[in-house]
Design a protein around this nucleic acid. Sequence first.
RNA 1: GCCUCCUUAGCUCAGUUGGUAGAGCGUUUCACUCGUAAUGAAAAGGUCGCCAGUUCGAUUCUGGCAGGGGGCUCCA
Length: 668
Amino acid sequence: MLEEITLSVDGKQREVNAGTTGAELYFDDREVVVMHVDGVLRDLARPLEAGTEVKRVTIDSPAGLEVLRHSTAHVMAQAVQQLRPDAKLGIGPYITDGFYFDFDVEEPFTPEDLKALEKMMLKIVNQNQKFARRVVTEDEARTAMANEPYKLELLSKTNEADEAGEGVNVEVGAGEITIYDNVDRKSGDVIWCDLCRGPHLPNTKLISNAFALTRTAAAYWLGSEKNKQLQRIYGTVWPTKADLKAYQERLAEAERRDHRKLGAELDLFSFPDELGSGLPVFHPKGGIIRKTMEDYSRQRHTEAGYEFVYTPHITKGHLYEISGHLDWYKDGMFPPMHIDETRDPETNELLKPGQDYYLKPMNCPMHNLIFRGRGRSYRELPLRMFEFGQVYRYEKSGVVHGLTRVRGMTQDDAHIYCTREQMKDELTSTLKFVLDLLKDYGLDDFYLELSTKDPEKFVGSDDAWEEATNTLAEVAEASGLELVPDPEGAAFYGPKISVQARDAIGRTWQMSTIQLDFNLPERFELEYQAADGTRQRPVMIHRALFGSVERFMGVLIEHYAGAFPAWLAPVQVVGIPVAEAFNDYVSEVIAKLREAGIRAEADLGTERFPKKIRNASKDKIPFVLIAGGEDAEAGAVSFRFRDGSQDNGIPVGEAVERIITAVKNREA
RNA sequence: GCCUCCUUAGCUCAGUUGGUAGAGCGUUUCACUCGUAAUGAAAAGGUCGCCAGUUCGAUUCUGGCAGGGGGCUCCA
């Protein structure tokens, strides 16, 4: 007679025989691939214990997908070691939308290898191998992994697994050491095994054929530049082929929106080789977008009480010694220009020492000099200085990327000097200002990130950091937006809130940052005279809304897929006559629009009418105005919108008004 | 910076097992005068990224450099 135990199964109390496994419990429920036991993800093969709370996990749930992806990584590693017996295993965790596995191999993988591996994986999947968990002692694990030097290294790190990061944790876990065997269904032989925390799917068959190996790359062992680089293979896997297709379509959509591609197609900007990596030039059409973005930003900053300043692109190095940037970020700065040194032409003796000038990597120290330029009164605070400041950063060659990571960029940078008492209100209104303005540019789905002190990289007292961090946290929470912590993500001088925006296809971009800084005012000895006559140190708020104008434009291009709202579109209206006979009529309409300040062009070329429509469509023109005999007689035009819809016979005066209104109201 | 792949006309891409190259789009010209995503014809346009080496001969092979893609690390 078997002993019975009581469990909570998906919220209901049930009696089962002692030793019942999840697989037996969910025998009739084919969708269940793994289970939560008291909130911990477990293999279905694990026997259940009395009093625990068991919940079903299906393959299409978030946890189920993680397990599917991790199990597929194992299948891939098995295939790799069949194809390349020399391959030593690194780690192989699940990631967003897929998985990867690192290998130490003599020769990097080729695209042909990936194809061969996919075939081998499908074979393994169809063999329906069993994933079997086995608890081992450290010695047993060492024996099993004798040929896997990286796994042995992980075993010696077991105790520090938590510190070594998520990847390591997935491999070895905390507490007991487990190995997962891939077992042949017929013979019961162990075909392959890996040191792994699990859990896994019960068998490989559940993986089906909705997977693909996507790319190869190099990655440092344990993520450290100091370690050897391993070869990484990325893959993706989904519960069904349709899910895989949908994912691939999402990638294709992202590729269609790529700002680098659209930037060339729409003639917005380029990166001439002659200038150097990461140094863009804006063509006339990109220039209009950029100017419109900047003009509107200036207008709003004026309204919000900012004052405009201008500072030079280069400076003597001493400025960045005061600020501390040369201590912390020298590697990220262009090397200095050494000038004004004089030597004796004969003896080469140094007659006059030179000076080191640097391209500026940031504007704040210069703004501080303006603040310090004369005595300041509490009556002037908050003092808000704004500048479209061009800065230059020596980004490593491998990280430069389109407009989103450049070496020369324009920050919409402002520094607000205020008292401690004003700090919280000022932060609150700044955050509101930032969010409102982002909305005007068409981004309206946000969350916030709070970056806190990096214990390795900071200046200033713990008290100041704590106060700054708490204030920022309060302001962020009061905004009502979702707040995600970013431990150790702060700059050396103070904590920050960053605004993350989701674009039209759901990707998130870090946009604006608001940083609180008690340290630079100290280093620059900034002071104001308070009402009681004492000298006080102001608090400094750094904030950038676009981050960089270049990057923000890149994000907007991707967000709008190049189809900018009328107020930002380089060409807002194209007039197309149905036939040459109506050229004059269309020209008159376009002239009226231009008088009203609309960027309008008449297409009077020799192309045929349908071709002109096609061209305007490809150029993503917001409003196409068409006119032929009927329209001319009626003193009207026909609207053709970007989506192909149409509004015919609109009187010219009304059409002009409609366009002006749409631009003025920044309609989408 | 590291690993890996790539660079042929303004753009997208063929091609040459080493004998200096081709298409489509775009551009120019001519003809057509046309109501909603490509009218036809002709022409122009290339030091095959740059510099070396091997070779009788290099766009092709080798090396270096530059620029780019995908990752890693980094991102004040």
